[in-house]
C-alpha cells in the first residue's frame, strides 16, 4: 500500500508543515477571520491593497486546523498576490481544488474553501458590500 492518501500529496504536506506568508500584517487594508465549525479550523486573512485600492499587494494568513484548511490558506496567499479584488471575487470551489492539485473528498471541501471564503468576505466587507463579523463554512 502506498504511503498515505491521494489527498495528502507532497504539495499539501509541504504547505502544511512550512506555511507561506504565515502571520499577521502590520497595517492591513483589511483583515477577516472565519471558521469551519465541524473541523474546528480557523483562518485569519490579512490583505494589503496597492494604492489603486484594487490590487492585492501582500497577503498573510494565520490560523489553526487540519492540513487541508491550512495548506489551502498557504497556497492561496501565493495565488492572491498580484490579483485584483475582482479576480478574487471570481474564484470558486473548483479554482481552489485546482490550486490544491488533489481530489478533495466531499466531506473535506469545507476545509479546503475556508481561506478562499474568508478572503472573499473580507474584501466584500472592505468594499461595503456585506456586513458580517465572521465567516463560516459548513
Amino acid at each position: 500500500m502506498g504511503l498515505g492518501s491521494d489527498m495528502y500529496r507532497q504539495q499539501i504536506l509541504d504547505h502544511y508543515k512550512n506555511p507561506r506568508n504565515y502571520g499577521e500584517l502590520e497595517d492591513p487594508t483589511f483583515s477577516h477571520t472565519g471558521e469551519n465549525p465541524t473541523c474546528g479550523d480557523t483562518i485569519q486573512m490579512d490583505v494589503v491593497l496597492a494604492d489603486d485600492d484594487e490590487t492585492i499587494e501582500r497577503v498573510a494568513f494565520s490560523g489553526d486546523g487540519c492540513a487541508i484548511s491550512q495548506a489551502s490558506a498557504s497556497l492561496l496567499t501565493e495565488m492572491l498576490t498580484g490579483m485584483t479584488l475582482e479576480d478574487l471575487d471570481e474564484l470558486d470551489r473548483d479554482d481552489v481544488i485546482e490550486m490544491l492539485g488533489v481530489d478533495i473528498s466531499p466531506m473535506r471541501v469545507k476545509c479546503a474553501v475556508l481561506a478562499e471564503k474568508v478572503a472573499q468576505d473580507g474584501a466584500k466587507i472592505h468594499t461595503g458590500e456585506i456586513e458580517i463579523d465572521s465567516t463560516k463554512t459548513e
Binding site: M7, Y8, T38, C39, C66, I68, S105, C111
Partner: peptide
Amino acid sequence: VHAHDLSSIVNDHGVAIRAGD
C-alpha cells in the same frame, strides 16, 4: 495530525473511525 486528517488517511486503509467533536 489533525483528527480529520487522521480519519482521511486511515480511511485509505479501509478503517472507519470518527473524527470531530
